[in-house]
Amino acid sequence: MYQQMGERRFGAVNWLGLATLARREVQRFLAVWTQTILAPLVTSGLFLLIFTIAIGPRRGDVMGVPFTHFIAPGILMMAVIQNAFANTSSSIVISKVQGNIVDTLMPPLSAGELVLGYLAGAVARGVIVALAIALGLWLVLGQAPAHPIWALCFVVLGAAFIGGVGIVAGIFANKFDQMAAITNFIVTPLAFLSGTFYSVEALPPVLRDITHANPIFYLIDGARFGVIGVSDASPVLALSVACGSVLGIMALAWLMFRRGYRLKS
């Protein structure tokens, strides 16, 4: 046992511990699937229905596709973002509030393994939600992904990035009201103001430049390319920004776990 722990400290991965943490995070949201999977599906359907009824008939085509088909990928990615963030942030905050975060920190898991374990749950939840919504789009709109591999890549990267943001937010927040503030004033505005329901080409130059600085814009735009084959930015650029954003937020989460920031006090 001591030899295995020593090997892990010198670079070997604690695969059993990592798999256990990942399984715990997946089982957390599967245990309440009506809230974590069914609810986002219903909410996305309501968004699509309301925007179609209120705006669709007068809006016409956007970038050469019907308005309903244009906003569908944005709604899908918005659901992925919200659920991936909720999965990691709620897990950490609940553990901190209940005082059992030590049960996660004490096992022989490195900071990198903790990050990957939490992200596994966020990515799994994001992908399952995305697949459920994509199935609904196919059944209701007859809309199948134009580039399914691209779409899947952006769903996974989006869930990983926002899951990482959730880790950082969960570590930073010590109370539920702090987490609610982060969700309401940072995550939700970034998700809504990133081309979810419109093309950024319709924005004034200043707002367009601000939107292009938002990494979530590239996630939504990349998902739109994967689903309907059109996008505001180059898919390659969007993929590059998404990968860089994931690496950056993972590095920050790793550093916070490594230093025990707001976790060991």
Rank of each mutant, 00 (worst) to 15 (best):
A146S: 09
I182V: 15
A72L: 06
G163C: 11
T183W: 12
R24I: 12
G117W: 11
R24H: 14
I216E: 09
V62L: 07
V227T: 11
S91Q: 08
Q143H: 05
G170F: 03
I55C: 05
N14L: 03
V123M: 13
G166Y: 05
A130Y: 03
N83S: 15
V187I: 15
A169V: 15
S89F: 02
R258F: 13
A12G: 00
S240L: 12
G248Y: 12
G170M: 04
V155P: 01
F67L: 08
C243S: 14
Y118V: 00
I249Y: 03
V187P: 02
F257V: 01
L109E: 13
F217M: 09
R24A: 13
L76N: 02
G126S: 05
A22L: 04
N83L: 11
A31D: 06
L252H: 01
T20V: 02
F225T: 08
V97W: 05
W33L: 04
A251K: 04
M250I: 10
S44Q: 01
L116M: 12
I37V: 07
V156W: 09
A173V: 03
M63V: 07
Q178P: 00
I92D: 01
P57G: 08
S91G: 03
R8C: 02
G226V: 09
G229R: 15
R8F: 11
L114S: 07
H212S: 08
P73F: 08
P204S: 10
A130S: 07
V115I: 06
L38Y: 05
R59M: 14
P73H: 10
V127P: 03
G121R: 09
G244P: 01
L38Q: 02
I171S: 00
F67Y: 15
Q35K: 04
W15F: 13
L255T: 07
A251F: 08
I186F: 15
G142Y: 12
L119S: 14
V97D: 06
F85R: 14
A238S: 10
T196C: 05
A72P: 01
L137S: 02
V168F: 10
G64N: 02
L137I: 03
S89R: 02
Y2P: 00
L16N: 03
G60M: 07
S245C: 11
A134Q: 03
L109W: 13
L18K: 05
A31S: 12
Q178V: 04
R24S: 12
P107G: 13
R208M: 04
N174T: 14
P205I: 12
L48E: 02
F85W: 15
P57S: 09
A251I: 05
I171F: 00
R259C: 03
L16A: 09
S90M: 11
A130G: 01
V42H: 01
V200N: 07
L135T: 06
G163Y: 11
L21H: 00
V129W: 01
